[in-house]
Computed example of a mutant assay.
Amino acid sequence: MAPRKIVPHQDYGFFAPDSVTRRVWGYPTTPLVGIQRATVIEELDPNLIAAVDDTGDNYSRLNTRYARTVQYFASVAFADARTVLKLADVLVKIHSKAIGHEPVGGGRYDANDPASQLWILVTGWHSVLKAYEVFGPGKLSAEEERQYWAECAIAAEFQTCDPADVPRSREEVHAYFEAWRPRLAASEAAQRMMDHLLDGVNAVVPRAGLLGVVRPLANATLRRATIATLPQHMRDLAGVRQSRATDVLVTLWLRGLMRIAARSLPVQRHLLAVLSPRTLPVIEPHWYGVPAVNPVVLTPDQARHQWGYVRPAEAHLELRARQAQRVFGDGLAPSDEGLLESQSVLGRLA
Rank of each mutant, 00 (worst) to 15 (best):
A2D: 04
P3W: 01
P3C: 07
K5N: 08
K5P: 06
P8N: 02
D11L: 01
D11F: 01
D11R: 05
G13L: 02
F15T: 07
S19I: 02
T21R: 05
T21I: 02
R23L: 00
P28I: 00
T29Y: 01
G34A: 00
Q36R: 13
R37G: 00
T39P: 00
T39F: 05
E43C: 10
E43M: 11
D45N: 12
A51E: 04
V52W: 02
D53A: 07
T55Y: 06
G56M: 00
D57K: 12
Y66V: 01
Y66S: 04
F73I: 09
A74C: 12
V76R: 02
V76F: 04
A77Q: 07
A77C: 14
F78A: 03
A79N: 07
D80E: 14
A81H: 07
A81G: 11
T83W: 13
L85S: 04
A88I: 08
A98D: 12
A98N: 15
I99Y: 02
V104F: 14
G106L: 07
G106N: 13
G107R: 04
L118R: 02
L118K: 03
W119S: 14
V122M: 01
G124L: 00
H126M: 11
V128P: 07
V128T: 03
K130N: 11
A142W: 15
W149E: 09
C152T: 15
C152N: 13
A153Y: 08
F158I: 00
Q159G: 09
D162E: 09
P163C: 03
V166F: 06
H174C: 11
Y176N: 04
F177E: 01
R181A: 09
R181P: 03
R181F: 05
P182N: 00
L184S: 14
A185V: 14
Q191M: 14
R192H: 14
M194F: 10
D195P: 13
H196Q: 10
L197R: 13
D199I: 10
D199M: 12
G200K: 09
A203V: 05
A203N: 12
V204N: 01
P206D: 00
P206L: 00
P206Q: 00
V213L: 05
V213A: 08
P216I: 02
P216A: 02
T226E: 02
T226R: 06
P231G: 05
Q232T: 15
M234N: 14
M234S: 15
L237G: 15
A245T: 14
D247R: 08
V248H: 14
V248E: 13
L249D: 05
T251A: 06
L254A: 01
M258L: 09
P266T: 02
R269Q: 12
L272P: 13
L272G: 03
A273V: 01
R278D: 08
V282P: 09
V282G: 08
E284I: 03
H286L: 06
Y288H: 11
V290C: 07
P291K: 09
P291M: 09
P295V: 10
V297M: 03
V297R: 01
R304S: 07
Q306W: 12
Q306T: 11
A315L: 11
A321K: 10
Q325C: 11
F328C: 08
F328G: 10
D330I: 13
G331N: 07
L332E: 09
S335R: 08
E337F: 05
L340A: 11
E341W: 07
A350K: 15
